[in-house]
């Protein structure tokens, strides 16, 4: 494994007014790794993603991508460097058919530069990508307006939009939330395929059982700080983590 981390955060902090959402979070992710980020509600997981992709401006700290700082760049330029994300609350273009949703990432400078495509070619590319994430080719589902799709397909569409950008690093923000076990089981192979293609993946997740099967390493967050970092089994044995998830002896005692 290479020694240079693909992405590194150094003492990243964010305060919304008086609320310290994130405090001095430092972590690194190696190329090809699948990193899970877990933690109770409100522990700062999504804020961390928003800071890396610069949808939110950090109060202090640094984000390094391939060794160079990116925390001063606007969000669209960070995407162009090869960091794609999905949103926890899916953000499709509701009025457009599902496959037309894919045209917009395919039209982005990064996708145009890497895979090309002229006007009219992109419809076929969009349908291919949607088939990859499980939109059945012979059905009508890819032509339905995104507003009429069920949650499972919206999550897949969100994933396909990230894949269309040909990213090096994919950040999946609670991709599994709101999905049935069967739907999760059908998305896991897509993630594993992305790993085989050499993509680095960060997964924010509440579904620990599914996450621990595929993650190499897990970071645990609580109250805006990183409280544990290590392989899934070791992390779950950590006392601080047990305390965060289950409550401490003194909390439950009274």
């Amino acid at each position: 494994m290479s020694t240079e981390p693909l992405l590194e955060t150094v003492r990243l902090s964010k305060a919304f007014g008086g609320v310290q959402a994130l405090l001095n979070v430092s972590f690194a992710i190696m190329p090809g790794e699948l990193l899970g980020v877990i933690g109770p509600n409100g522990s700062g997981k999504t804020t961390l993603v928003n800071l890396i992709t610069r949808f939110v401006k950090p109060t202090s700290g640094k984000v390094l991508y391939k060794g160079s700082p990116i925390h001063h760049l606007p969000p669209h330029q960070i995407v162009r460097l090869g960091i794609a994300r999905t949103f926890q609350m899916v953000r499709p273009f509701y009025q457009l058919p599902a496959f037309k949703n894919m045209i917009i990432p395919l039209y982005s400078p990064r996708a145009k530069g890497l895979v090309g495509g002229r006007y009219g070619d992109r419809d076929a590319m969009a349908l291919d990508l949607l088939e990859e994430v499980g939109f059945e080719r012979d059905s009508f589902v890819a032509y339905k307006p995104a507003g009429a799709l069920p949650q499972g397909y919206l999550k897949r569409l969100e994933l396909a939009k990230a894949i269309a950008l040909q990213p090096d690093l994919v950040i999946l923000d609670e991709l599994f939330s709101g999905l049935s076990l069967a739907e999760v089981a059908s998305i896991v192979p897509i993630i594993e395929k992305m790993r085989i293609q050499g993509k680095t993946i960060i997964m924010i997740e509440h579904r620990l059982r599914e996450l621990f099967r595929i993650a190499d390493r897990v970071i645990v967050m609580n109250y805006g700080s990183k409280i544990a970092d290590g392989p899934p089994d070791a992390v779950m044995e950590d006392d601080a983590v047990k305390c965060a998830y289950l409550g401490s002896e003194t909390d439950s005692g009274d």
Partner: peptide, 25 residues
């Protein structure tokens, strides 16, 4: 009706999603 117009319509529909596609809205 072209892909270019689709990006413009995307901005009115959901501008953050367009930013997230690496496009300078």
């Amino acid at each position: 009706d072209s892909d270019y117009g689709l990006v413009l319509k995307g901005i009115s529909d959901n501008d953050r999603s367009v930013i997230n596609a690496g496009i300078n809205i």
